[in-house]
């Protein structure tokens, strides 16, 4: 409490600047450390991602699990809450009925797996399917959240959650009668040029 008071209280903490990073940047998300390596549009069928008759925008990362337990690669879907391609939002999906995010897998030896083991670094691919004939975007901008080891108010047990803040209500929320809305805080944005790979 004293420390909190000494640093001017909780409310007055300076708002974090949105950090803008580029290709090859490494972001510490507390639960995991993510290095953004590449963004590429290519057909599926390789590395256990998708099918060969469709094209996918793949964001390629090196993720190190900094927690003390095995987690699933799909957690990166929550850890990177927003993805925009040339200003168009890929994630969160504009259509509220689409609740499933992109598929996120660990790629190793030409296979797709799901696990990120503690203390180990793995190549993680987040893949978005492109509609047929849709041109490849030139640039993707990825927003990264930070995790915290959160203590539940009721059960006093701990688990990982992304740091959130109160966000303005959307029309959808009002329709459903929600009164508060929390969204993950984006402290870092990573902008990657997209290259296109044929076949």
């Amino acid at each position: 409490m004293g420390v909190t008071a000494a640093f001017g209280g909780l409310k007055d903490a300076p708002a974090k600047q949105l950090e803008q990073l580029g290709k090859g940047a490494e972001v510490d998300q507390v639960r995991m450390r993510t290095k953004f390596e590449d963004a590429v549009v290519r057909p599926g069928g390789k590395d256990g991602i998708g099918t060969s008759d469709k094209r996918y925008l793949q964001i390629i990362m090196k993720v190190t699990n900094q927690s003390d337990a095995t987690m699933l690669a799909q957690i990166m879907d929550d850890a990177l809450p927003t993805v925009r391609a040339d200003g168009k939002t890929l994630k969160p999906a504009a259509d509220p009925d689409v609740t499933l995010g992109p598929r996120v897998v660990v790629v190793s030896g030409g296979h797709a797996y799901d696990q990120l083991h503690p203390g180990m670094t793995a190549t993680v691919v987040m893949a978005f399917e492109l509609a047929s004939g849709q041109p490849a975007p030139e640039r993707v901008v990825i927003g990264a959240a930070t995790y915290e080891w959160y203590e539940s108010f009721f059960s006093e047990t701990h688990y990982w959650v992304p740091v959130t803040e109160e966000a303005p209500l959307t029309a959808e929320d009002r329709k459903k009668g929600r009164t508060v809305r929390y969204e993950p805080v984006i402290d870092t944005q990573v902008s990657l040029p997209v290259r296109e790979e044929a076949q």
């Binding site: 003390d68 337990a69 095995t70 296979h111 797996y113 696990q115 083991h117 503690p118 203390g119």
Partner: peptide, 16 residues
């Protein structure tokens, strides 16, 4: 099963 290391890390059986 899970494997607990000396440092307290918990590994699930591999899905490979």
């Amino acid at each position: 099963a899970h494997l607990i290391t000396a440092g307290g890390l918990s590994f699930d059986p591999t899905d490979r």
